[in-house]
């Protein structure tokens, strides 16, 4: 038996994320079953699994965007609602309408809104922070650009900058590498490493198996339940992946995987693939 939710005393040092026996259902059909998870401070966790495995659902459930059927979630030892300002979020890029009449800076400023009460406008300091965040993702020269005039990779970087502007301790990122160019991908991973070096915790939904072992130091293999979770070298085994993908692993990804694993067993710092 797992002990009950943490006491007040330990809330300072509580794990960034603790999930116990979580079940989430859409119209009574469960998508996630009995998820147990504890994520230590300062780790980069890759959430990997086939389509429909519930990766995004897990992220959304953590933030209370979906009703939970059973189990509980603690963020820094508290329910999410009480830890809102400590969590940063990067949603999927397709989840918004990019024709919306805002510029890049407006979007990044939204990251500051969680800290402002109602009736309060973002201050000069907030705008400076937002500008700095745009600079970190090398998008400062596009600050005044309407967001539909940005490329896919640039849009993704704006989303990342917005999360940075939240100045949180735990970051949840839903597919930040989808549809971005190689430059953006390496820029994003650089920022993730930097965040980790500052002691932040990151949970990243990812679907590219070839880069997963290179990017993450922990991996959560998900397919409606936890197939495997732990340090990348322990979890990223062929058997586990076969289990997660239920034999649906195509020959192509198998080959890619073998290559990735060879790289991984050898030198992890080398770029995987090309």
């Amino acid at each position: 038996m797992q002990s009950s939710p943490t006491t007040n005393l330990s809330s300072k040092s509580a794990a960034p994320l603790e999930v116990h026996d979580l079940t989430v259902a859409y119209t009574k059909r469960p998508v996630l079953y009995g998820i147990d998870l504890e994520i230590p401070k300062g780790s980069i966790v890759g959430v990997v699994g086939p389509n429909g495995a519930g990766k995004s659902t897990l992220i959304r459930a953590i933030m209370g965007l979906l009703p939970v059927s059973s189990g509980w979630i603690k963020v820094f030892g508290k329910p999410f609602k009480q830890a809102v300002t400590r969590v940063g979020y990067v949603p999927q890029r397709e989840s918004v309408d990019w024709d919306f009449p805002v510029n890049a800076l407006d979007v990044v400023l939204m990251g500051r809104y969680g800290r402002l009460g109602p009736f309060k406008r973002p201050s000069k300091a907030d705008k400076e922070i937002a500008m700095n965040c745009l600079e970190k993702v090398k998008m400062d020269s596009y600050a005044k650009r309407q967001i539909s005039n940005l490329s896919g990779g640039q849009q993704q970087r704006v989303f990342l900058a917005r999360a940075l502007a939240q100045e949180s301790d735990l970051y949840l990122m839903d597919e930040p590498f989808v549809g971005v160019d190689a430059t953006t991908e390496s820029a994003i991973i650089e920022i993730l490493r930097e965040l980790q070096a500052q002691g932040k915790t990151l949970i990243v939904v990812h679907h590219d198996l070839t880069t997963a072992p290179e990017y993450f130091d922990r991996i959560l293999l998900l397919n409606m339940r936890v197939v495997a979770y732990g340090k990348t070298e322990d979890v990223f085994t062929f058997e586990n992946l076969q289990n997660a993908y239920g034999g649906r692993l195509s020959i192509l990804s198998e080959v890619a995987l073998t290559r990735a694993r060879k790289k991984f067993d050898g030198d992890t710092r080398d770029n995987v693939g090309q």
């Binding site: 959304r60 209370g64 965007l65 809102v84 979020y89 949603p91 939204m110 939240q166």
Partner: peptide, 9 residues
Amino acid sequence: FDSGFAQAL
């Protein structure tokens, strides 16, 4: 613009 993000805030 982004109701999911609003809820996350």
